[in-house]
Write a protein that binds this DNA or RNA. Structure first.
Lengths: 193, 193
DNA sequence: TTCATTTCTTAACCCAAGTCAATGAAAAGG
DNA sequence: CCTTTTCATTGACTTGGGTTAAGAAATGAA
């Protein structure tokens, strides 16, 4: 239950860690706890940190005419690498916790140092970045060509937990539809048995 | 009108080139001409090259139930870095010319060598990649939250030439709608004066 | 518990996109 | 040049999401 083991567990998904690596990760790791509603990054700010959600749930969103448009949800083991963190330009998005969350924080400087010391991690980092890019493209194709109903079904399959822990109006926002529409979709799917 | 100057022009957009750099670029550059319909990359193949469109027009698409879904158009000065080129996994997409085109071809090996020799180009390469990522996110948000009609209008603004050089049914495919719908959208916009 | 607030559902109506079918226009090929 | 094929438009109809408004259900605070 020691929270300092979260990050070790994360990397263990991808590779077997040596004792030295485990120790470095433990010692380097900065883990913070956040309350529901806490903000990790504000629109207009420069992101100086990237994140890894160890526990909890986080949303990335922007405000369009006062209305919150949710772009992405992050839960356990999801890395968050804000565009602003990479480009050094002010963020277009807000990132905030929608549950009490435990989150590991990375900085450029510490990441560099870590990768220099353990170069065998570099390909993993690259691979993670690539698969995120590929996922995003597939997702765009789906949004363009599939109905909200089908996309909701896909979401049920790929992230079944989300539906139980996130209010429906946020799911609707994420799908790009109104809460009323999502309600009808659910009704339709249910009656089709 | 010497075609070997295209690539030099491309980089000149971003920085002033020394004579040595110009010469290297000219000598290294591999430029090929393609006919309408020629295929740059096939679904299932491994991309060993990346591209820069110097002249002409290229589409990236996939087949869904025999139907062509266009993901992106590339025209003059657009770089094409296939996901497959980066991940070394078989391509999910086809890339082919929809006009006679002149295209510069890059390989991993030559790019590495070039960047090693002229490290000052590295940040430019990174910057181009980043801005593509950011653009893609914005585009995803638009697809999710804007109507096809508004997206068509945006396309008219951002790539006014496309509408004149690409058949409408391809524009429709790119927008994720049926040709009939695009036809009606155009009619609507016209009658609104 | 009770009350207030937030979240979810339902209904009625409108409008835009999908579908199918027919026709008109434009390009391509001989 | 004419023919054939491809592409674009239009109409009639269906369907599903947006909007507005109302009420039900869940949540939380006092």
């Amino acid at each position: 239950m020691n929270s300092e083991n979260f990050l070790v567990d994360y990397f263990s998904q991808y590779m077997t860690l040596s004792e030295e690596e485990v120790n470095i990760i433990k010692s380097e790791d900065i883990i913070r706890e956040y309350k529901k509603g806490d903000i990790l990054l504000r629109e207009g700010q420069l992101a100086k940190e990237c994140f890894l959600v160890l526990k909890g749930c986080v949303k990335r969103y922007y405000l369009d005419d006062g209305e919150e448009k949710i772009v992405e949800f992050y839960t356990e083991n999801d890395p968050i690498s804000p565009v602003s963190y990479i480009t050094k330009e002010p963020s277009q998005y807000n990132i905030s916790c929608i549950e009490p969350s435990i989150i590991s924080t990375g900085t450029e400087e510490r990441t560099q140092r870590f990768l220099q010391k353990f170069p065998r991690f570099v390909p993993i980092f690259i691979k993670i970045g690539e698969s995120l890019t590929a996922e995003k493209q597939v997702f765009l194709d789906e949004v363009k060509n599939l109905s909200p109903e089908v996309r909701y079904q896909k979401l049920l399959e790929t992230k079944p937990d989300l539906i139980n822990r996130v209010p429906q109006y946020m799911i609707a926002s994420y799908l790009g539809i109104q809460p009323e529409s999502l309600s009808r979709i659910r009704k339709r799917l249910w009656s089709d048995t």
